[in-house]
Design a protein around this nucleic acid. Structure first.
Length: 250
DNA sequence: CCAGACGTTGTT
DNA sequence: GTCTGG
DNA sequence: CCAGACGTTGTT
DNA sequence: GTCTGG
């Protein structure tokens, strides 16, 4: 088994560049966390995973993110940009608006339906995500994790965009209405998949009923807790962002 | 026919 | 106010 | 999601 | 690329 070491942000950026994620046109960036080791991703999603160990506490749209896609020869981990650029787009900037896709309309929207139909579906590994609760003018960030903080996946869609200069792979995260526990914070939530059967179905199923069944609010137990406002800025990416605050409102 | 959009979120 | 970038 | 920009010219 | 609006 290969061993991984923690690498600097600079080295990680170089690595992303090497595997085809260009920093020029976009990049390097909802919000969610992915702090687990590559071994955990590999084990949970049954996919070869050779990315360096680089915990991320504040992943924002526009950034390069590892996702899992299905393929003829099995699952594959691929780094993509968050913010789907449809293959027909004239320029990449549309991606900054296609960060989420609604479950309710995913089959009818031109930007998403082909990805849904033609198996350009992906799993987006995460071990938590942020939502902001609005209270008047104030908004407070919360982090949502599974009970044991284990890694899970958002249901995603991806596409490939080709310009004369480059090919960009990008994805969007599917949303649905909030579950009972999430409604305290927010009216919507990402689609969460957390067991192997769901992973397989989302990547490989051809039947729309099977797929739509997966796109429901997550009713399992969630741990929801307020975090530091430092998370507001995508520039901040450090372990302190996911600490439990002592007295409720941070 | 061509032109223009193609998306979600939340708030007023 | 609204869009783009992260 | 939030933060930050919101512009053009010409020159290095 | 494909649909909607004019």
């Amino acid at each position: 088994m290969a061993r991984y070491c923690r690498v600097s942000a600079q080295i990680f950026a170089v690595y992303l560049h090497q595997i085809g994620v260009r920093t020029g046109v976009f990049i390097i960036c909802g919000r969610f966390t992915l702090t687990v080791a590559p071994e955990a991703i590999s084990k949970t999603f049954r996919v070869p995973c050779s990315i360096p160990y680089f915990p991320r506490y504040n992943i924002a749209p526009g950034q390069a993110v590892p996702v899992i896609v299905g393929g003829e020869s099995g699952r594959l981990l691929k780094v993509m940009r968050w913010g789907l650029i449809p293959h027909w787009a004239k320029d990449a900037s549309i991606g900054s608006r296609l960060v989420n896709a609604r479950t309710e309309t995913v089959l009818s929207k031109p930007a998403f339906r082909d990805s849904f139909r033609f198996r350009r579906r992906c799993l987006v590994p995460a071990d938590g995500f942020y939502e902001w609760k609005r209270e008047g003018k104030r908004s407070t960030p919360y982090r949502i994790v599974l009970p044991d903080k284990e890694v899970f996946a958002f249901a995603g869609l991806w596409d490939r965009w080709d310009s004369s200069e480059e090919s960009v792979f990008s994805f969007a995260i599917i949303t649905t209405e909030a579950s009972e526990s999430m409604k305290e914070i927010h009216s919507r939530m990402p689609v969460i998949l957390s067991v192997e059967e769901e992973y397989g179905e989302w990547l490989e199923a051809g039947d729309f009923n099977t797929l739509r069944k997966l796109l429901r609010p997550y009713e399992g137990r969630l741990h929801i807790y307020p975090v530091s406002r430092l998370v507001n800025s995508p520039k901040n990416d450090m372990p302190e962002l996911i600490l439990e605050e002592e007295n409720g409102e941070p």
